[in-house]
Structures are given as C-alpha cells and as structure tokens.
C-alpha cells in the first residue's frame, strides 16, 4: 500500500485517497512541432525501472495536484513536492542520489 504525503495539506494520504496522473514535468508540444515531438508528448512516457517522477492528485482530500519521486522497482518514495515547479527540488534530488548516485533527470541529462 502506497502512502504519499500531500505537500499542500500535509496529510499522509493512502493510495485510495489519491488519483495517479502519470509522468510529471511533461512539456506540451505545440503548433509547428514535428510529428515526433507530438508523439513524444502524447505517448512516449518515461517507464524506468527505478526513479519515476509522477503526478498525483489528492482526490479525496484537498483536491490539488502534486508531484512525487518514487522508485518503481521497490515502491520507495523519495519525496513529494508541489506541482508549480518545472523540476524536482534539491531535497528530493538529494534523496534520489543517496540511492542512485549516477541518477540524472532526462531534462538535465
């Protein structure tokens, strides 16, 4: 059973209180972009066995979207953070690097 702390209301929410929203930090493809860019935006989700940055909604709580860093191989949670950001914050990145020293996010790789 997955527990994630909502960064807005502070509740340690159990999975049934949350709705999963897929990969985080997606950049919308737009007019003039290539077919490949659209394909990437619409379908090519990150699917790492390891670190995954993802969106969640505190659906049966405060109702807000937030982001989480989680290990898909172990279900370990590295941290949650508000959705109003374009990259994972330093404390979350640090938690990830403690386990995966070589980890780099696709946007910074």
């Amino acid at each position: 059973m997955l527990l994630l702390q909502c960064p807005y209301c502070g509740v340690n929410a159990e999975e049934t209180e949350l709705a999963a929203g897929g990969e985080a930090h997606l950049k919308r493809a737009t007019v003039g972009d290539s077919d490949e860019a659209f394909e990437g935006y619409l379908f090519m989700r990150e699917n790492k066995k390891g670190v995954h940055l993802e969106r969640w909604r505190h659906a049966y709580g405060c109702g807000k979207w937030f982001l989480a860093a989680r290990d898909t191989a172990t279900l370990e949670v590295f941290g949650t953070y508000p959705a109003q950001t374009t990259e994972p914050p330093a404390d979350v990145t640090e938690n990830i690097r403690a386990k995966y020293p070589d980890w780099s996010w696709k946007e910074t790789a």
């Binding site: 059973m1 997955l2 999975e15 049934t16 709705a19 999963a20 699917n47 066995k49 995954h52 993802e54 989680r70 898909t72 191989a73 172990t74 279900l75």
Partner: peptide, 12 residues
C-alpha cells in the same frame, strides 16, 4: 494506476 515493476499489486 501507477507505474510499477514489483510484481505486487495494491490491496484495495
């Protein structure tokens, strides 16, 4: 509903 490789699903 979320990505997972643990061959273990959620109880609910």
């Amino acid at each position: 509903s979320f990505n997972n490789y643990t061959q273990r699903g959620s109880f609910h």
